[in-house]
Every structure is written in C-alpha cells, then in structure tokens.
C-alpha cells in the first residue's frame, strides 16, 4: 500500500487552555487512502489535535492544509464540508433509534405531503440508501430496523462508520474504536478500517491498543507533551520502540505494555 500525496497537513499546531499548553507545535501528515495510527499517553494532546482537525477547537498558531490549500475551520460544520468526520467513542449513536435513524440523523430524507406545509420522512429511501452503504462496506446486519441498543459493540461501531461514510467522508477519525469490544469483534472493526482505505478514505486511528495499530495502520505517529515524538512507517518500527516513545526516555522494562490491553 503506497500512500499518495498528502491529503491533510497540520503544521506547527499550538493550543493552550489557560496556562496548560496542550499542543506545542505538533505536525501531522495524512495521505490519501492512508491509515495513520495516532498514539500517546493521556495528556499527550491526541484529542486536542483531533478536535482542531474537526473544527471543534481553533489553534492558537499553526496551519492546516487540505489538498494543498490552507483552510481555517470555525466549526465542525466547516471541516465536515471538506469530508472530515470524527467518530466519538460514546456520543456517536442514539441507542433507541434504529440503524437507519442513526445513519441519517440530522439530515433525514423527506418527501412532501403538502408542499411547504408538511414533509414526511422518506423511510423507504433512507432504508435503501442505508443498505447500499452497508453493502459497500461489506457490513452484514440482520435488520436495519433494529434499535442500535440491541446490536453488539462491534456492530454499533460499524453503524457509526457507515454513518460517517454516508457523508462521503474523505477522512475518518476514530477515537478508540476497539476499546470496549469483545476480542472477536475487534478483527471485524479493523477489517472495516481496511475496507475504508480500499474505498480511498483516509483514517486516523486513535488507539491505546498498539497491536490494532500494527495490524491495520500504514504509519504510526506518537504524540508526547503536545509535540510529535515519532512519525514513521509501520514497517520501520516495532511495538517496543513505539512504547519507548510514548513513555519517553529509555525507561526499559515497560515493553509489556505493548501487548497488554
């Protein structure tokens, strides 16, 4: 898999919250159809960097370049307009709505009943479009009419991913997609990440599970103290090395972290 020209470049991103410097000149590069593993300990700045990429926060300094053009995001709507979608760990789905309701939440298809007065949801069309998206991602689901609360954790992730893709996403940011999944479901979600890449969608995978990153990512980037500590192709590094960069210094003896959950 050879990633093409950079789709997204973030350069010298600085962001402080009061006296706390969350990011101190972080860089990030993401190619077309590339899967980037983003790792680092809890205060490393991963989520702040992603919130800047998705327009939730605005950087104090630094620039974002998308397809070679400098862009400024004032709200998540701006980044979404360029095809950047974030899948949050918990706030992605409404458990009481069915698969179709979730995939189309916030941009339901409607049909006119009385012009200008009343519009009804076009369930048949949303149903068909949902199935099409699921098929395209090779996601198998018994019913698109089941409330997502009744689906397994892996299937819920699949629904969230299908939702992102249905916006014609070009970049999907996943926040710990496998953290709460049963072992056999992890593989399915990772397969879905590969499927996205095959569909020319770029993925940023935030994960504490290094084995996931090493299974599916093309590159891995370590953030530490608000700055990039390592940025390398997966083939050029090892889990032990990545762990060393995550914790800083040659602490040694911590390599067991690489394989633990």
């Amino acid at each position: 898999m050879t990633p093409g020209a950079p789709l997204v470049e973030m350069r010298g991103i600085v962001k402080a919250f009061g006296a706390v410097e969350a990011l101190r000149g972080a860089d990030l590069t993401l190619g077309v159809a590339e899967v980037l593993g983003l790792v680092g300990d809890n205060a490393a700045g991963k989520s702040t960097l992603m919130k800047i990429l998705t327009g939730v926060h605005r950087p104090d300094a630094g620039e974002i370049v998308f397809e070679g053009r400098a862009v400024a995001f004032h709200s998540p709507r701006d980044s979404r307009a360029l095809g950047i979608e974030m899948i949050y760990q918990n706030l992605a789905l409404a458990p009481n709505l069915d698969v179709v309701g979730n995939v189309f939440l916030g941009r339901e298809r409607t049909k006119r009943v009385l012009p200008r007065v009343m519009e009804w949801l076009d369930e048949r069309r949303m149903d068909a479009e949902t199935r099409k998206i699921l098929d395209r991602l090779k996601i198998r689901m018994d019913s698109v009419r089941a409330p997502v609360a009744r689906l397994s954790g892996g299937q819920q992730q699949a629904v969230a991913i299908a939702r992102a893709v249905s916006f014609n996403a070009r970049v999907v940011v996943m926040d710990e997609p496998t953290a709460s999944l049963a072992v056999k479901e992890v593989g399915k979600v990772l397969a879905l990440v590969s499927e996205l890449r095959a569909k020319q969608v770029s993925v940023i995978l935030i994960s504490h599970r290094l084995q996931d990153v090493f299974t599916v990512a093309d590159r891995v980037m370590v953030l530490r103290g608000g700055r990039g500590a390592l940025d390398t192709r997966i083939g050029d590094t090892t889990m032990d090395e990545v762990v060393k960069y995550i914790v800083g210094a040659d602490t040694g003896g911590l390599s067991h972290l690489a394989s633990g959950r």
């Binding site: 706030l91 409404a94 309701g101 939440l105 916030g106 519009e119």
Partner: peptide, 24 residues
Amino acid sequence: KKTRFGRYVYAIGGNEEAATYAGV
C-alpha cells in the same frame, strides 16, 4: 413517527450529545 420533529425528539431522549453532534 412520520416527521423530522418526531425523529429528533426520540434522538434527544436517546442520546442528547449524539443529537447535538449530528447537528440537531
């Protein structure tokens, strides 16, 4: 059952944050 209004009421009751994030 048939309108966007109803769909959003259910969504808000089910997961208010998800509804907010979806632009409701």
